[in-house]
Amino acid sequence: MINKFYNNLIVQSIFLMSILIIMGLFIPNWLVFVITKAIAYGLVALGIVTLMRGGLVSFGQGFVFAIGGYTAGLLGTQAGLTDAILLLFISFLFTGFVGLIIGPLLARYRDIFFAMLSLAFSMVLYGVLIKIDAIGGSDGFVLPESTYFGILPSTEYADYMLYLVSIILSGIVSILLRYYYNSTPGLIALAVRENELRVEYLGASAFTVTVLNFTIAAGLGGMGGALNGIALGHIDPEFSYWTTSGEFVFISILAGYLSVPAVFLAALLLELVRSFSGRYFPDTWQLILGVFLILSIIYIPTGIGSFFKKFMDKLNKKKNK
């Protein structure tokens, strides 16, 4: 039963990924870029969703987002490492490691205290980054063009290459996360959300699970930051600013914690609305974006993921009959 579920999941994921990869050849360049950027944001929001399953919301995911971005950027400019896949992987490991170090400190707090402490971390990093002139201060710096296995793609294909990498990456991450969510620690996280005390009495450690979740969230955030930096070709301390963190929280609320693909869809939706409102309403784009945020919170408080889940449940019911 379980194995069948995962087999199905993997087949479905590969099917979806191949459709997206083929689609990427035919859609215009700007959309390829927007999807890449949505995946970057989606990865970070997935980290928040992972924390949300354990009942925590981080208002400071910009912290790991910036660390990931700067890791990739500095490796690119200082060490001459330009391989996109390698940069993404190193950023993931490094920020995950950072998460593992500060995780135990944060994991002792809950609710608003956790949120505010994570926010504090991101704002401290922001303050530090704008003061360091050697890495551009508040201007940030430009990243070198990225290569893939030692090959520098031509301008027409550079965007598509990164798109390809990010589609495959997000596919793998999505599958692994579904494994994790359905594993023992993943399910304990849900129990922690419901009743932490009872979980402790049953012999499981809420602390360990929270640290684990935080580490995963940090790694994903770092990878998202690196991807965003590589895609844009520019990094600045805004990555760590609280408004950036706020966007991630919004994406994860819009997506809900029930479905993994919903997170990427929510990120894409936000990215599209923002970019089109900026283009067609240059004077009032913030207003359009704000109305969109309010509407989506009023009409879909449980997130886009809840539709996915309802749909899948219905499908399963029909099958069982």
């Binding site: 870029f33 950027k37 805004e238 970019s275 900026g278």
Partner: peptide, 24 residues
């Protein structure tokens, strides 16, 4: 002319610039 708002930081501007060039 297609006016675009410069508010929002350098990273956002890079994105808007790409939109202008690639989409418009």
């Amino acid at each position: 002319a297609i006016p675009i708002d410069e508010n929002g930081g350098a990273t956002k501007q890079v994105q808007e610039f790409r939109n202008l060039v690639q989409r418009d």
